[in-house]
Write a protein that binds this DNA or RNA. Structure first.
Lengths: 200, 200, 200, 200
DNA sequence: CATGAATGAGGATTCATTCAT
DNA sequence: CATGAATGAATCCTCATTCAT
């Protein structure tokens, strides 16, 4: 019987791609997109520069490959939150719990003014994803407003934006990783502040 | 020998330095640190590139000179807020009103991961200023907690961080500049959300 | 009176540009476009790599700047030849004498299949110039045919092409520079072969 | 032990080598040496890139292997022409007819300045072949001169060079492939121009 | 032998910084 | 002092070549 030789190779390949993405994420989070050289990524992974290009045809694409799945996962979580059986508040809490530690890269994206210009073709797709995410959160907020839970005076866009801001990785890193607050406590606090903030 | 010749020269020099800082701020806000070239700054000011280096020995230092006074002003506002005659809540509102539209650069600082790595020597001073700012806000928060206004369970650091996050220039730009919400309304909304959020 | 300081600088600049073009021509004639590195050109001129880019924004443009004036001069000579007071044969001889030793780069252009793809935007201009050159030669050939001097059976395009081929720099280099044939003798021979070849 | 197992293997090997040469010729004619990648050659043949290196140790050698047999064939044709039963003129016509459409690669060789620098070790052999070709043509020219057919004043080297230039593939492509002139007419025209040109 | 993933030298280009005028 | 031409380190990316499987 013919061995699925490709299976192993392919697994190793994907594994390495994960290492690359991981290394790139670490370095870019620390130094930003521009101060992260392809050499340094390759070095950290322990492969040759050229090998990076077997996985990602441009530095841009590597950054995109870093951001896109995070945004996708986040969007999926938003949709799960909407479908979640509970109040609008419980839905938002669900989302906070699900995504709190994985949301880093939207921030890299939103915060580095350079990155906007880094993506060209993909910018549209990214913008679309972000719009969908905001839209989905808006629906939950509407639900809450209709149920008389949330303040009707506040515009959804502002509320959604502030909600997204709660995922700020800097805050998370500071409280949870540096100051050893438990993740659960952190999320409870965040949820409390935000939900009270928008209460009717 | 002519006395105080330097006085005029010096005044002109300082004036020029202001123009440089202004040009740099505009361009960096728009394009980000890395996509801002020394050439473009010099061009916008109308001076030669070399002249920039008579004022700032490195691009880094120019960015630093941009951020530092903003932090200083912010710190000063924090101190004024503390001295403000009113409740802790009114102090925070005072701060929001005073700094909302001028706070951009702390954010550029915190949010652009590149910039963090741009400052080396100055990082310490920056960190010190930020610590003082956080400390000052913490004092106001303590005051509020003691007066029974704010939730005692929330750690000051977290609350201060979230307060600072309310100055997010992306949100400000979106609501006020793009969607034409009045600055007053914007601040009222922000204050409402935050202050309710941390209420006892 | 204000010295035209720029005048000297500008003269030096243009002088250096000539050196660059000269060095590039030499190296590219010897090694071809692809084996000529910007480093080597800079080295030969004795300037830094970056300085090349003050004169030519891309390697492409340097090659273009090398080819274009030669084509232009050639075209001008074609037009002078047409206006020359004499028979069609004398006109062609005039052209041979005028351009024999300066025509090198059309050949570099025509002969390196890579170069075609090197020029992008400029290709059109180049093609236009070449078409004009061929057209002009065609007119002279027509004149000769009408005067009963040239063979009517031969298509102009073919005749013009073969005429242009007479400028082959390889042949010129071999006979004149390596074998010390006088330029005059060389041209006399070339003219004889070509003109007899197309005679009625 | 199985004898001559290598025989089949060897035949297949040689067959594959032919495919490689064929693919390389096609692509290099179209795109030039530098824009032809080993990947593309392997792809067109349908083998792995590494396999190319079982046949040719360097890209250079592949190009050499492409050019050398063409030169050899050309040389052989020159020798057949010399042995051809007829006048010197008829010998040259024989050569034009025999090699007109196969001579492309000598031209790629002579005309692409890159290629010259590509061959290092082989350059000597190539130069030797070219010298032999020129020599052979020179003999025919001598024969013609002695028979009073060709102009004695013209140096053989020049005449031979110009004869070789008649094989210019650019002209052939233009007239025959693009403008649909028949090959026979083309050769008739070429022969006419050249032979008249060198006539006594 | 055949494969094709991995390598890394090589080259174009940018731009902060220097320094002669 | 002011200038801006000149510099060259830094970085992305390509592709011929190697080598473990």
């Amino acid at each position: 019987m013919v061995q699925r030789k490709g299976s192993l190779k392919e697994r190793q390949r994907q594994e390495r791609e994960q290492y690359i993405l991981q290394a790139a994420e670490e370095i870019m989070l620390e130094k930003g997109y521009h101060h992260t050289s392809m050499d340094e990524i390759a070095d950290r992974v322990g492969i040759a520069k050229g090998t990076l290009y077997l996985h990602f045809t441009r530095k841009e694409e590597l950054a995109y490959a870093l951001v896109e799945p995070k945004l996708n996962m986040f969007l999926e979580s938003v949709q799960q939150a909407r479908a979640y059986n509970g109040t609008a508040q419980e839905k938002l809490i669900y989302l906070l719990e699900k995504e709190m530690s994985g949301a880093f890269f939207q921030f890299m994206l939103r915060s580095d003014p350079d990155l906007a210009s880094v993506f060209k073709a993909q910018q549209q797709r990214i913008d679309g994803l972000i719009a969908e995410i905001f839209g989905g959160i808006g629906k939950i907020l509407d639900e809450g407003k209709e149920a008389g839970l949330f303040d009707r005076e506040l515009p959804n866009e502002m509320m959604a934006f502030q909600f997204i801001n709660m995922f700020d990785p800097h805050l998370y890193l500071k409280m949870v990783e540096q100051q050893q607050m438990s993740k659960e406590t952190f999320i409870r606090h965040v949820a409390k502040v935000y939900l009270r903030g928008i209460e009717r």
